[in-house]
């Protein structure tokens, strides 16, 4: 039974290569009593490209979605993708300054990222009650990347240098979430297309630092981070003669697993680094 309704902005990647993030976000929300209603005819927020090329596009593409959500649904918006979240927040802040009369937005609705929304005490309490199979023995680091927290003037995150939202959720579901200093370091994001050499360096450092503290996997909340850490692992192993085996999860996948909902095989097949051997070894399947 749904207890609250939220407008849902999936964004483009959740409809393509990050389908498993979409799937498990919906499952987890349903289980926690949140009804997600997709914003009708939502459009791309411009992601990491619009703001590099054109200042008007950078605001306008996000703004159109806010107007649609406010007018047609009148519900607060929740966004799983970190990059989309940040773009919609930029649009929200700009529209409220009143400089874009072509986008009538009154600010009656707010924009949340799914991670921080679910980390609220009320939902963590619910989550705790719903855990059927605590993920004991799984050693992980929480990796937030850039755009969920920075810049705090846009994201309104109270702890941009040391966010704890994902750590708290992971601990609630029984994961041994290890402290590390790289939780908000950058993965290189869309530099992957023009300058993959840079992304290789950044991602390799993240693997190194995760393993150094004893992590067996990395948990993310961003499809761009997930793509860079998961898709590039084989390449990096070849290039640097390493043999990393570090499955990369979305936090919603582990939540679903702990709550015993859905089939892990369904989301796992979207990963290049197969997480099933690790989960089997830990008796979590």
């Amino acid at each position: 039974m749904a207890e609250i309704e939220l407008a849902y902005y999936p964004g483009c990647t959740l409809k393509t290569t990050a389908e498993e993030f979409d799937l498990t976000s919906r499952q987890v929300c349903r289980e926690l009593g949140i009804k997600l209603i997709e914003i009708p005819d939502w459009n791309c927020c411009g992601a990491s490209s619009a703001h590099e090329i054109d200042a008007y596009l950078a605001v306008g593409l996000g703004a159109l979605n806010l107007v649609k959500a406010e007018k047609e649904l009148g519900l607060d918006i929740v966004v799983p993708c970190a990059a989309c979240f940040q773009r919609l927040k930029v649009a929200e802040k700009e529209l409220l300054k009143g400089k874009y009369p072509e986008f009538p937005f009154e600010g009656k609705i707010k924009v949340y990222d799914l991670l921080r929304f679910l980390a609220q005490p009320e939902y963590r309490r619910k989550l705790k009650q719903k855990v059927k199979k605590p993920l004991r023995g799984l050693r992980a680091v929480a990796y937030y990347g850039c755009l969920l927290t920075r810049p705090p003037e846009i994201t309104d995150h109270p702890q941009p240098e040391n966010p704890m939202d994902m750590d708290q959720i992971l601990k609630t579901i029984g994961v041994e979430c290890l402290p590390w200093s790289y939780k908000t370091d950058c993965c290189g994001a869309s530099l992957v297309v023009g300058r993959i050499d840079i992304v290789h360096q950044l991602v390799k450092k993240l693997y190194e630092k995760a393993q150094e503290v004893g992590a067996e996997c990395v948990v993310t909340a961003c499809p761009l981070c997930h793509a860079n850490l998961d898709l590039r692992q084989r390449e990096i192993n070849t290039k640097f003669h390493t043999n990393y085996y570090l499955p990369i999860f979305y936090f919603t996948e582990l939540m679903a697993l702990a709550m015993g909902i859905g089939q892990p095989e369904k989301w796992a097949k979207g990963h290049l680094v197969d997480p099933l051997p690790l989960l089997k070894a830990k008796n979590l399947l």
Partner: peptide, 17 residues
């Protein structure tokens, strides 16, 4: 990337990657 958004309203960024 922006060209695809112009033509479709949506993008396939990670797909491009």
């Amino acid at each position: 990337f922006l060209d695809t958004v112009y033509h479709l309203g949506r993008a396939h960024e990670v797909g491009l990657m």
